[in-house]
Each structure stands twice: as C-alpha cells, then as structure tokens.
C-alpha cells in the first residue's frame, strides 16, 4: 500500500477532484492540445502571455487523477512566471518524475516548486509517468506555438 499512498497523496486527490484553473480564460495568447492515445485522455492548455510573463494559465480536459492533478498544479505554479523560469521548471519537473532522487536535486531553487514534489510518486509507476507529464509537454508546445496535437506516444 505504501507506494500507492505515495502516489495518491491527499493533495493529488484533492487537485484531481477539484482542479484549479479549469476552463478557458478570456484572453488566450497561445494554447495547445495534448492526447494520450493509450487511455484516450485529453488536455488543452491555455496561456495568456504578456511581455514574457505568464499572466494566466488554465486548462480543460479529462483524465485520471494524476493527469488532472498535474495539470492543475502546473497552472497554479506557472502564473506570474517569466518564460525563462517556465523552461527551467519544465526540465526540473521532468527530472522529478523520471529520475531518481539525486538527479533532481539542485539546479532550480524554488519553495513553490516543492509543492510539485508530491507528484514524484509516479517514479515508482513507469506506466503512469506520461499521465503526469502530458500537461507539461502540452504547455511547452503551446509556448512554441505548435498547432499539432501533443501525444504521449
């Protein structure tokens, strides 16, 4: 049960059930769709950028607790960030869910980022890593102005 508890922490269940920043904002400067063909889950990320700063980040979609929680927490942390910081966070998050403990230490220093540590439980569940990273990849594609749908496969 412990690896499962580690994966399904209260915070994740909470974000999964009551996602923050769900919906389409009034001003959207870029958006992108993500899709996991394995389970049919989808996510759309909307960003409102102003002068290199993320003014607004929201999402829509359907998926498992992990993918919804990850999208929800991502949109929270992105708000107010500069694009440079966003890229660094993308890298750090990727390490967090795929590498071992040591590999994701250092490099990026943010107390806020600590919140995302709850998602590190997916490391023990290789089949679920894609659920956690879908929103992040989709967000990156939105920033790069990609019209093509992001897929996990």
């Amino acid at each position: 049960m412990s690896a499962l508890r580690e994966l399904y922490q209260e915070v994740i269940l909470d974000h999964g059930k009551a996602p923050r920043n769900f919906g389409k904002p009034e001003h959207v400067t870029c958006e992108s769709n993500g899709h996991n063909p394995l389970c049919g889950d989808t996510v759309t990320i909307y960003l409102h950028l102003d002068d290199g700063i993320v003014e607004e980040a929201t999402f829509e979609g359907r998926g498992c607790a992990i993918s919804i929680a990850s999208a929800s927490m991502m949109t929270e942390i992105l708000k107010g960030k500069q694009l440079g910081e966003v890229s660094a966070m993308f890298e750090r998050f990727h390490n967090l869910v795929t590498e071992d403990e040591a590999a994701c230490e250092g490099g990026f220093d943010s107390e806020e980022f600590e919140k995302l540590m709850v998602l590190s439980g997916v490391r023990e569940f290789p089949m679920r890593v894609k659920c956690a990273t879908l929103a992040w990849h989709t967000m990156k594609a939105a920033l790069q102005g990609g019209a093509e749908e992001v897929t996990t496969e």
């Binding site: 389970c39 998926g63 607790a65």
Partner: peptide, 14 residues
Amino acid sequence: DGVHAHDIGTILDR
C-alpha cells in the same frame, strides 16, 4: 463513480 479507470487499474495492479 469519480475514479478514472486508469487509477483503478494501478491500484488493482498493486
């Protein structure tokens, strides 16, 4: 109700 099939699969697997 309220639980995605993927999450159920992971828990049953364990």
